[in-house]
Amino acid sequence: MIELSVENINVNFGDKKILNGITESFEGGEMTAIIGKNGVGKTTFIKAIAGLTKHGGKSRLFDNGKLINDRNAIAYVPQLGALSTKLTVFEMVLLGLVNNLKWHVTNEQLQMVDDIIKKLNLTDISEQPFNTLSGGQKQLVSMAQSLISKPKVLLLDEPTSALDLRHQLIVMNLAQEYTKETGAVTIFVVHDLMLASRYGNSLLLINDGNVKAFDKAENVLKPEMLENVYGVQISVEHTKTGFLSAVPIKPL
């Protein structure tokens, strides 16, 4: 049983307070969606967990109650940016093992790459340069790069932004599958409230550096709460397929 516990995480950029001390606990095998307005510190929060941002407070990872101090146990998948690398898909995925790579790459390492590429159906494009891929393919390769090292915590920064509907589902299903299979803690930042409720076992709503709510989707996606946070009139409905849908009506 994996558990990630954060205590009083706070981050300042100069004089500006970004996070005001967040204390929460995340359970393995579950996915948490982080939602909130632009600039409230969603990305900062998961970067702090990944150790990529200077922060105060503690973030600790336990496996069956045992403290784990391995930085490689946490994988952070950055948002897809303008990345023009000509590394091939195979090489990109291989780089996920960068800390263990020597001049000579071992057969086991190659086999690991091989396995994950096949699993993610990237075989046909394995020798294509990364910069020639579509957004969805790039995201999958990014995920593969992170998953190859079998992380215990998977942090996804807006994994579905700029992807078409089909790839949104493929990417999120992949994360869900991995979480269930390995019992990892998965936290993803997302703007789309539908995806948040569809994949998040619970939703963490951040507003102005504080946790506004951390609960099941039906308890977070409440019109009054969202209107307050997002400044829009919003209608929350249950769909016929059993999902929760938040439809924005107009800005307030």
Binding site: L87, M92, V98, L101
Partner: peptide, 22 residues
């Protein structure tokens, strides 16, 4: 040559390299 893989990782983007623990 001791840095080969790390340097290769940097070509995959600074943020990504950092997140890979470099």
């Amino acid at each position: 040559t001791k840095f080969t893989w790390k340097l290769t990782a940097i070509t995959a983007g600074e943020e990504r390299a950092k997140s890979l623990g470099i």
